[in-house]
Design a protein around this nucleic acid. Structure first.
Length: 764
RNA sequence: GGGUCUGUGGCUCAGUUGGUAGAGCGCUCGGUUUACAUCCGAAAGGUCGCAGGUUCGAGUCCUGCCAGACCCACCA
């Protein structure tokens, strides 16, 4: 053994484990006679990006898996990768723009293929990184969210939702990023504070205040609060939109704040969710003045085709000229921006696919209330229930290419007003309604060069037709919906799909599903409790009638040494791979759990990782010293038989042994108890601290120092404490402990082949 | 506006059901030919944000306040 522990050969150890089959549990033929399995589904990393420190927190799962494996349970930790729709397409488009191209240069098939190839490279990197950290994942059961079997089941789920009347299309005001060309959920947009202006405009008999004068052209009413005395006599009369002199009704609605602005609100249902709500209530039309491309429409010739910010400037100029701008005052408010590209989110009416979530959420709520699904730490139970009880219908369609297309089909002949964008033979983008295009272009050309289609809300669709022939008119001018699924629609079914659940015929699911579902623990960061955990709960109950996991454990978030979030722009990112290369995976793993609490922040610093690296070296050297001592006895007495069996130990039980031995054995017994109890209660921070204290200060500093002049009778206890310590430490720092064990196994002919599959110590 | 969390030694954080405060790093002093300087020994350093309350006893439970972080929400 070298003077220092060299983590350079960690991957050799990993291959040893993998080859031994320790990561791959087998499903017993007779389920009843086997102990129940311990199962964790790895939160699937995005295949688009190399991993960051947050992913290294999966070490919690590895600790649990290794511990349960040592308890003799069949353990499955299932790895995978997520295609991560929006995220991936965003990253890819950024790269594309560096080459001077954009997504508009390609038809969907070509673009899809380009992204696919890009993701494949990264997927391999991710797999390597997970291995680098020593994660005992069953690679024979690896899954990817876009592999045919997974997608196939997801499409079946979509059809089942349709059959169960839980699916609908609706034009809704959505948060739409005209830059990314897609809609976002409320939870996906960021809010920033901004200094803007509030414009007071003259609407004839009434004055209104707005931040968005460029949208006045599609106003359909002016609303006042019914309790507002100032305007009582105006309700039912007409206001006049300036510049176009259009009359609109003055209506009353209590959503209007009396104290804000003039107390009169212009109603633009197409571009504001409050306005939309009021518009629906009063049966007012929804007319949009911003196209999906982000340009103005339905305004006046001077303004059409401008972008909203330009349009605002122009509108104000014109209002000023006509003396309709009463006053302008500064306004500090918050606006929504795209969390990806940081551009302003527009509220636009777009037809979307929705899932009715209220009935689906019910069992997912009940299960947590009853404690069938436990949430740890418990305070997140309330957060979870709040979200689930106030759940809104789920918009599952995204206007991007990267992901499985929604399996709905439109007949163009039956729906001639479908809007189509495609690339023609010359590479030019052609846009228009099908009825206008069909005489100029052949259907096959449209289909081949198709980028997107936009079917009006009234369009007829059908879900399945193997020949793609319209069931009504029997013509085959059929196109599939170009919207793709929200990523969470796929990852929400992950515990089901990866284990081989059969949506159409649950009784016909794979043996893996029967054995491993429900899984034991789902460990993730709290920020996707709703996005992911909630959706998995919903699908688990909807499809399999059972909770997908018995316990949800929320781990801590990694921050820098000052407690700040790691980000590239701050330059405080610690990269897991380079940390592993510098200090070893064990040091990083321990730094992430040592002295930490769940669902809090973990401030990670080089100093802390270094301290943990020193600990791994301490273990290495203590072991080396034990080996030196024993070999010294051997040299003195070549006939010495090293008694490593517990028979040698029994001498010490009952106070008949050496007092130093008794003390360390008693301390060892204590640490076995406390470590086991801490692991049972998810107290990884405490467990690792206690082990650190025991090994370094009780075993090394006290016991080993004392036994330096002892004779060979010390061997059984010394070896027993060391090997037992290696076992207790193994879930936390698997590489150094297994490396030492392999060395000792050879030197002293130990029976058990691998530490990873050795038995967890039992306390007396 | 509603909600959650945090405030413990210089720094970063633990502290399980209430029983007179702990760790890592840093600092000071000393040691170290003989497992490890990625080492060993010793010392300094905290009225546990503030004010009340419950209790024989509170960092730990309750109330209020102060400071900070985050989440949710339709103020144009």
């Amino acid at each position: 053994m070298d003077k220092r522990y060299d983590p350079g050969s960690e991957q050799k150890i990993y291959r040893l484990w993998e080859k031994s089959g320790a990561f791959t549990p087998t499903v017993p033929k007779n389920k009843a006679r086997q102990s129940p399995p311990f199962t964790i589904i790895l939160p699937l990393p995005n295949a688009s990006d190399p991993m960051h420190m947050g992913h290294a927190m999966f070490v919690i799962q590895d600790i649990l898996c290794r511990w349960h494996r040592m308890m003799g349970e069949p353990v499955l930790w299932l790895p995978g990768a997520d295609h991560a729709g929006i995220e991936t397409q965003y990253i890819f488009e950024k790269r594309l723009s560096e080459t001077g191209k954009s997504r508009f240069d390609y038809d969907r098939k070509t673009l899809y293929k380009l992204i696919w190839d890009y993701v494949e490279e990264n997927r391999k990197i991710n797999q390597f990184q997970l291995k680098e950290l020593g994660f005992s994942l069953d690679w024979t059961r690896y899954h990817y969210s876009l592999e045919p079997n997974i997608v196939n089941q997801v499409l079946k789920t979509f059809r089942k939702l349709y059959q169960d009347d839980l699916l609908y299309r609706a034009e809704r005001i959505v948060n739409y990023c005209t830059h990314c060309g897609t809609a976002f959920s409320d939870l996906e947009i960021d809010h920033v504070e901004r200094d803007d202006f509030l414009y007071y405009l003259d609407y004839g008999p009434i004055k209104i205040a707005t931040t968005r004068p460029e949208t006045i052209f599609v106003d359909v009413a002016v609303a006042v609060n019914p309790k507002d005395k100032r305007y009582k006599n105006l309700i039912g009369k007409k206001a006049i939109i300036p510049l176009i002199n259009k009359e609109i009704p003055i209506i009353a609605d209590d959503l209007v704040e009396i104290d804000f602005g003039t107390g009169a609100l212009k109603i633009t249902p197409a571009h504001d969710s409050t306005d939309f709500e009021i518009g629906q209530k009063h049966q007012l039309p929804t007319i949009s003045c911003i196209k999906l491309s982000g340009k103005m429409v339905n305004t006046i010739p001077e303004i059409d085709e401008l972008y909203p910010s330009q349009a605002r400037k122009k509108t104000i100029e014109m209002l000023e000229k006509q003396a309709k701008l009463v006053k302008t005052e500064p306004l500090h408010h918050t606006i929504g921006i795209c969390y990806r590209c940081k551009n302003v989110i527009e509220s636009l009416p777009v037809p979307q696919w929705y899932v009715k979530t209220k009935p689906l959420a019910k069992p997912a709520i009940e299960s947590v209330k009853k404690g069938e699904t436990k949430i740890f730490p418990p305070r997140f139970k309330k957060t979870y229930l709040d979200w689930m009880e106030n759940i809104r219908d789920w918009n599952i369609s995204r206007q991007i290419v990267w992901g499985p297309q929604i399996p709905a089909y439109y007949c163009l002949d039956c729906n001639p007003t479908i809007q189509i964008n495609f690339i023609d033979k010359k590479g030019k983008i052609i846009s228009g309604l099908y009825q206008d295009l069909k005489n100029k272009y052949q259907f096959q050309q449209i289909k081949k060069g198709l980028q997107t289609l936009n079917a009006p809300i009234t369009a007829d669709y059908f879900l399945k037709n193997s020949k793609n022939i319209c069931p009504k008119c029997k013509v085959s001018h059929v196109l599939q919906e170009t919207d793709t699924f929200d990523t969470w629609f796929l990852s929400g079914q992950w515990p089901l799909t990866t284990l081989g659940f059969n949506v159409d015929n649950p009784a016909n699911s794979s043996p893996d599903f029967d054995y491993f579902y429900p899984t034991s623990v789902l460990d993730t960061l709290w920020d996707i409790l709703f996005f992911w955990v909630g959706r998995m709960m919903i699908f688990g109950f909807y499809l399999a009638k059972k909770t997908p996991f018995k316990t949800v454990h929320l781990h801590a978030k990694v921050t820098d040494e000052k407690g700040q979030k790691m980000s590239k722009s701050k330059g405080n990112v610690i990269n897991p791979s380079s940390t592993v290369q510098k200090y070893g995976a064990d040091a990083l793993r321990l730094a992430l759990v040592y002295g930490t609490a769940p669902a809090s922040n973990i401030s990670l610093s080089d100093k802390k990782i270094e301290a943990m690296r020193n600990f791994t070296n301490k273990i290495w050297n203590a072991s080396r010293f034990v080996k030196i001592i024993i070999n010294r006895f051997k040299e003195q007495n070549p006939n010495l038989e090293i008694n490593l069996s517990l028979r040698g130990l029994r001498l010490h039980v009952g106070g008949r042994g050496n007092p130093d031995d008794d003390e360390i054995l008693s301390n060892l017994n204590q640490i076995i108890k406390s470590t086991t109890a801490n692991l049972e209660k998810y107290r990884f921070g405490q467990a690792s601290e206690d082990l650190y204290q025991f090994f370094w200060h009780q075993f090394c500093d006290v016991y080993i120092e004392k036994i330096k002049d002892r004779k060979e009778d010390v061997i059984p206890v010394l070896m027993h404490v060391l090997i037992t310590s290696l076992k207790l430490l193994h879930p936390f720092i698997p590489f150094v402990t297994e490396t030492i064990y392999q060395d000792f196994k050879q030197e002293f002919s130990l029976k058990k082949d691998l530490l990873i599959t050795s038995l967890w110590p039992k306390a007396k």
